[in-house]
Design a protein around this nucleic acid. Structure first.
Lengths: 137, 137
DNA sequence: GTTAGGGCTTCCAGTCACTGTAAGGTCAAC
DNA sequence: GTTGACCTTACAGTGACTGGAAGCCCTAAC
């Protein structure tokens, strides 16, 4: 199984797989006589693990560490759970930040007529104009 | 007003202000005799505009474009509104993606005892184990 | 007068996780 | 034998900063 097949089987790209190898996230792939990387089902599992971890928002380094943990029989589930809970907290912060952005935008957008005129509450908001019903008062 | 005062007055850092200038997001600051950048209240407004735009999640390039629009009397509010609506859509996509991550994590975390044992549903999920009540069955 | 400190300047490297591009080797099919 | 699709490496670029080095400038204290 060559790299593009491994890519198709894992949902990664060939480039990303090479990148992971170069970064030491995964062990170097074996090579066939022509120098092509070859992948076993076992290697695919490593790649899938990293992909799932990335899909949960863990960094590459954290993903690497999690994989190591998964290979370490002396690990404790507490140590894993802690990382996952931290990750949830980070995600919650990101969501909250995005929701704040969204609320600001939504307020501005709903006040904006979106016509051919120049007058625009969105730009007013960006300009720090304290609005409070700006038009025709 | 020198750069660190401008930074304090806008909520940016000196480094960020220099970066914005170097990137052409803001016009080059005037310089005093000793070569220090000096900022007028007018320049502060530009910086604040960019900061607010960034705080709404617009890219630096979009922020620059929005500022140009805000200076352009021939703009239409429709053109601004369109950008803002696109931005809301991007944010909604990000929020959705984060909520999916969160849901995966939450499922795994709530199944994990978090004790001194090695057994860990979180790692099982990363390993693609189809779980479905894995313990003691 | 000089020394210590803080702030200013420039420039370059590093972050994160890829992605793009170039130059070249390999392989199967026609 | 030549096309075209794959593979290889290596390096540059992305976005939005951040950190650090090396050196000027200014003030205040000794």
């Amino acid at each position: 199984m060559n790299i593009s097949q491994a890519a198709a089987a894992t949902g990664l790209t060939s480039k990303t797989i090479r990148f992971y190898e170069q970064q030491g996230v995964i062990p170097p792939a074996a090579r066939s006589a022509n120098g092509y990387r070859i992948y076993s089902e076992q290697q695919l599992e490593v790649l899938r693990f990293i992909k799932r971890s990335r899909d949960m928002g863990f960094s590459l380094e954290e993903s690497r560490a999690l994989f190591q943990l998964s290979q370490d029989p002396s690990r404790t589930s507490a140590s894993v759970k802690q990382k996952a809970e931290q990750q949830i907290q980070r995600i919650d912060q990101q969501i909250e930040s995005l929701q704040q952005m969204r609320a600001m935008l939504e307020t501005a957008v709903s006040a904006c007529r979106g016509d051919e005129q120049a007058e625009c509450p969105i730009l007013d908001q960006l300009n720090g104009v304290a609005d409070e019903d700006s038009r025709l008062t």
